[in-house]
């Protein structure tokens, strides 16, 4: 075995390792986004054909979200990993639309946003909490820190457009701080029961040491029959 052979093999291994790392970066930054965009589109299509097939649950009273404490007494439970709503955040772009899927499993979050199963449904009293990727898998919450008080977060569950308003600038916390998705989220400044929404993502952008949280409260509802809410048509 000559020195030449050893040196050559070592060089080839180094080149191979380098190529592997570059390929992984391509996969991570680019390919996950392609896959997520494809999956999210598929989920939204599935949702819309499902809504077209079967009219979803009775619509809640369109006027005054504060009026009735609870709508339908026993709604059909969401199926794990399946989409049940779409979310629009005009601050992130006019065409920013992602499906909201039930549960926050790793596989679910590859296809869209994930609803914390234990939290309220959109429009209900309590806290409708949703998690999403900040980076990779389509970067849905890439612009999360740009959210400002008053920004609209619009959710469509097939019967109703729910327009939530962000209450304050995103809040930074630790991953174990589960109180941020409580019915009355701790640290949000909200007092007493209400119809809230919580968004969570990772912080810093490429890390996982902390979480970034945004809270919103229900501002308006609108039956889907009346068309898109003004926040989305400007």
């Amino acid at each position: 075995m000559s020195v030449r052979l050893v040196v050559r093999t070592f060089s080839e291994l180094c080149i191979t390792a380098g190529a592997l790392i570059i390929l992984f970066v391509v996969y991570f930054l680019f390919w996950t986004g392609v896959k997520a965009a494809d999956a999210a589109e598929g989920e939204i299509d599935a949702l819309q054909s499902q809504w077209a097939r079967e009219p979803v649950a009775p619509a809640p009273p369109p006027a005054s979200p504060e009026a009735s404490p609870s709508k339908s007494p026993d709604p059909v439970p969401y199926r794990a990993g399946k989409p049940f709503a779409t979310m629009h955040i005009p601050r992130f772009g006019a065409d920013w639309e992602w499906p909201v899927l039930e549960n926050t499993a790793v596989g679910t979050l590859k296809k869209g946003l994930g609803h914390y199963s234990a939290t309220a449904r959109p429009g209900d009293t309590g806290n409708f909490a949703v998690a999403g990727h900040r980076r990779t898998y389509g970067d849905p919450f890439k612009d999360f820190p740009r959210l400002r008080p008053g920004d609209a977060v619009v959710v469509n569950d097939g019967t109703t457009w729910f327009t939530y308003r962000v209450a304050k600038k995103p809040h930074r916390t630790v991953p174990t701080d589960t109180a941020v998705v409580d019915p009355v989220p701790r640290g949000s400044g909200f007092e007493g029961a209400g119809r809230y929404l919580t968004l969570t993502t990772c912080e810093p952008e490429w890390g996982s040491s902390h979480r970034l949280i945004a809270w919103a409260h229900l501002d308006a509802t609108r039956p889907v029959g009346d068309g898109r809410p003004p926040e989305l048509t400007d």
Partner: peptide, 8 residues
């Protein structure tokens, strides 16, 4: 760690 986005 980039996929950790929940507060569980």
């Amino acid at each position: 760690p980039f996929g950790d986005v929940t507060v569980d």
